[in-house]
Simulated assay, not measured.
Amino acid sequence: MRVRLTRMLPLVILLLTVGQLAVAEWWPGIDRFADKAFGARLVAYPLLMLLAPALWWWFVKRLRPDAVAPYGAFSLIMLGFLVDVTGNSADLYDTVSWWDDANHFVNWFFLLSGIGLIIGDSVRPRWALVLLVTGLGAVLAIGWELGEWYTFIRHGTELDTAYEDTLGDEALGTLGALCAGLVVGRRR
Rank of each mutant, 00 (worst) to 15 (best):
A22I: 06
G80N: 07
P125S: 14
A102H: 09
L132G: 08
D35K: 09
L117G: 14
I13M: 04
F74G: 12
V123G: 10
V60W: 02
R4P: 00
L178G: 04
L16D: 04
N107C: 06
E145S: 00
R2L: 03
S75I: 08
W57M: 15
L51Q: 10
L16Q: 04
G29A: 02
Y93S: 10
L117C: 12
A162G: 00
V96R: 14
W99T: 03
G137I: 02
T6I: 13
Y45G: 13
V130Y: 12
L21D: 05
L15C: 09
T86L: 10
P46Y: 14
Y150L: 05
T134D: 07
M78D: 05
V139Y: 06
G185T: 11
L50C: 10
W56N: 13
V83T: 06
E145Y: 03
M78Y: 06
L131S: 08
L167V: 11
P70Q: 06
D94A: 12
T166D: 01
S75Q: 11
A90T: 02
W27D: 06
A177L: 11
V130R: 12
L47F: 15
V18F: 08
V183H: 06
A54I: 14
Y93H: 12
V85P: 03
L42D: 12
P10F: 11
K36C: 04
A24I: 02
G29F: 00
V184S: 13
S97M: 01
F152Q: 04
L146K: 02
A54N: 13
P10Q: 15
F74S: 11
G114I: 10
H155S: 13
A162M: 01
P70V: 05
S122D: 15
R4Q: 07
L136C: 13
W26P: 00
A180D: 07
D91C: 01
L131M: 12
A180Y: 08
A177C: 01
A141T: 00
N107W: 02
A171N: 01
A90C: 06
F81G: 05
E164H: 01
L112T: 05
Y93T: 04
Y93P: 09
W98C: 04
D160V: 09
R32Q: 14
Y45K: 14
V68N: 13
W127L: 11
V83R: 02
F110L: 07
L47D: 15
E170W: 09
V106N: 11
D91W: 01
P28I: 02
R186M: 05
A40I: 15
Y45C: 15
V43K: 09
W149K: 05
T6H: 14
L16I: 07
V68S: 12
G39Y: 04
N107Q: 03
L63W: 10
G156W: 08
W98I: 10
V123M: 03
A24D: 06
L14V: 09
G87D: 08
T174K: 00
L15R: 08
R2C: 02
D66G: 06
S97F: 05
L76I: 08
R187P: 01
W27A: 14
F152N: 14
I118G: 12
G168E: 07
V139T: 10
A54Y: 15
A37K: 10
H155M: 07
D84P: 00
L48Q: 01
D101Y: 02
L11S: 07
Y163Q: 05
A177K: 09
Y93L: 07
L136T: 04
R154I: 14
P125A: 13
L11F: 05
L48W: 03
